[in-house]
């Protein structure tokens, strides 16, 4: 083993690979010309960087279904999300990526929206709790919670609280639409103690944490453990009994409904988000579909 030969080989290979990397990036670098660090002119000739969620995400499931990215052909379903899309496995992951990249587009829960990103209007309709409630904003889905067989006394009480007037008031306070309109008042049971494990959607988690905190104030001896790892994981956990309650940010699948009892705790919009510097304000549902299937690749194609 000659060290000289090895080092020469390594240097040559390294140089070749780095040149290849630079070669691949030239067009992208050119695209950056019109961009300023903040608030400057936005160059619409730039390539759209598509950010999506992972397989098994309820938000992705609902989004692809509503926008037409998911195509149903008889028995089979085909998710036509652009193969080169960057995949993030949480709501925060999508927001962080979009807030750091002026050319990117993503989608998140309406309730998780903050000012680090900009929400786009869809077909001229602004995403808000009002437009979700009246049905004019089309990209909306329920937040479902589900359980298998029978809940323990403490888990049942927590479920009752979530569906009560007090619980639904918290849901509305967090920026979601209530799922139960004439909800009964919650009556705290005496001497409850124990653990309730809630597992699932990263989109449902923020509102569930608020509900759990308020419930713990009313029932100090009860601990609510929340695990945030995706809708499918939540439904799986509920089905195999490793969680008392599963959370899903989508409608339940047939095989899940066969085993679980579910109820919506809130209605939430899915917001299409871009970087605040992006000058695009409005997209049609068809344009969203085209972006997410890779048919449209630059911002110029969708800018007015």
């Amino acid at each position: 083993m000659d060290f000289k030969k090895i080092s020469k080989y390594m240097l040559t290979t390294g140089a070749a690979l780095l040149l290849a990397a630079c070669g691949g990036g030239e067009s992208g670098a050119e695209n950056q010309d019109g961009e300023t660090a903040s608030g400057g002119s936005f160059d619409t000739s730039q390539t759209i960087n598509v950010i999506t969620r992972e397989d098994g995400s309820g938000t992705r499931g609902a989004f692809t279904e509503i926008t037409g990215v998911l195509v149903e052909d008889g028995e089979t379903e085909s998710d036509n999300t652009y193969a080169g899309a960057t995949i993030q496995n949480s709501t925060n992951g999508v927001m962080t990526t979009v807030s750091g990249d002026p050319t990117s587009i993503g989608y998140i829960s309406l309730g998780s929206l903050n000012d680090t990103v900009k929400a786009l209007n869809i077909g001229g309709i602004e995403p808000s709790t009002e437009t979700v409630q009246d049905g004019s904003y089309e990209i909306a889905r329920p937040f479902n919670i589900a359980y298998k067989d029978e809940l323990s006394e403490v888990a049942q009480d927590f479920w009752t609280f979530v569906m009560s007037a007090e619980g639904q008031e918290l849901v509305v306070g967090e920026g979601y639409v209530e799922a139960v309109t004439d909800a009964p008042a919650y009556e705290a049971a005496e001497g409850l103690s124990g653990n309730v494990s809630v597992v699932g959607s990263t989109s449902v988690t923020p509102v569930m944490e608020v509900l759990a905190e308020e419930y713990s104030n009313l029932n100090p001896d009860v601990t609510i453990d929340i695990t945030s790892n995706g809708s499918s994981a939540g439904m799986t956990a509920a089905m195999d009994g490793s969680a008392d309650i599963g959370m899903a940010s989508r409608e339940l699948k047939e095989e899940e409904l066969a085993e679980l009892t579910s109820e919506p705790l809130a209605i939430d919009g899915i917001v299409v988000i871009v970087h605040p510097d992006n000058t695009v304000e409005d997209l049609t549902m068809e344009q969203v579909r085209q972006i997410y299937t890779g048919e449209v690749t630059t911002w110029a194609d969708v800018a007015e």
Binding site: A20, A21, G24, G28, S57, A83, G84, A85, I87, A233
Partner: peptide, 26 residues
């Protein structure tokens, strides 16, 4: 984490471990 054959070094790609960590819970 894009499951596509890498054509250059600056487009999203994935590894065996990244797909495992992304998907195992789902």
């Amino acid at each position: 984490n894009a499951a596509m054959v890498p054509t250059d070094l600056i487009t999203p790609a994935s590894t065996l471990t990244s797909i495992l960590t992304m998907s195992m819970g789902n």
